[in-house]
């Protein structure tokens, strides 16, 4: 769901970045946050809430609301709306409060 044509804005072709989402290969573009790359792929559920296990996704996009916390490169509670996508990043859906010891 990327915008191809826009009356005001021009979106230049950017470098493709591949990464892993829940073990599967995925890709985004340079300048993407993890959340925007996942969104462009149609992934809306980014985490599950810590007490009631409710699905949560991108909400504020400024790192405020904790709805988009994911496990990135083994580390939990990463705010993916304000974390830039990096080549070969391993991104995983977080379903608990987060484990401090890396589990792959």
């Amino acid at each position: 769901m990327r915008i191809k044509e826009h009356p005001i804005l021009t979106f230049e072709e950017k470098k493709k970045l591949s990464f892993f989402f829940d073990g599967k290969e995925a890709y985004g573009y340079e300048g993407d946050t993890i959340a925007s790359a996942l969104h462009a792929m149609g992934v809306k559920v980014l985490s599950h809430s810590i007490e009631l296990n409710r699905p949560r996704g991108l909400y504020c996009a400024i790192g405020n609301c904790s709805s988009c916390n994911m496990i990135v490169d083994g580390k939990p509670n990463v705010r993916t709306c304000v974390t830039m996508l990096v080549e070969n990043m391993k991104v995983k859906t977080q379903v608990n409060k987060g484990d401090i010891y890396e589990k792959d």
């Binding site: 990327r2 915008i3 804005l9 979106f11 300048g31 925007s36 969104h39 462009a40 996009a61 400024i62």
Partner: peptide
């Protein structure tokens, strides 16, 4: 604000 960021910064609907 998030919608604007997605759309106008990242080009994602």
């Amino acid at each position: 604000g998030a919608v604007q960021t997605l759309m106008n910064v990242h080009g994602v609907l």
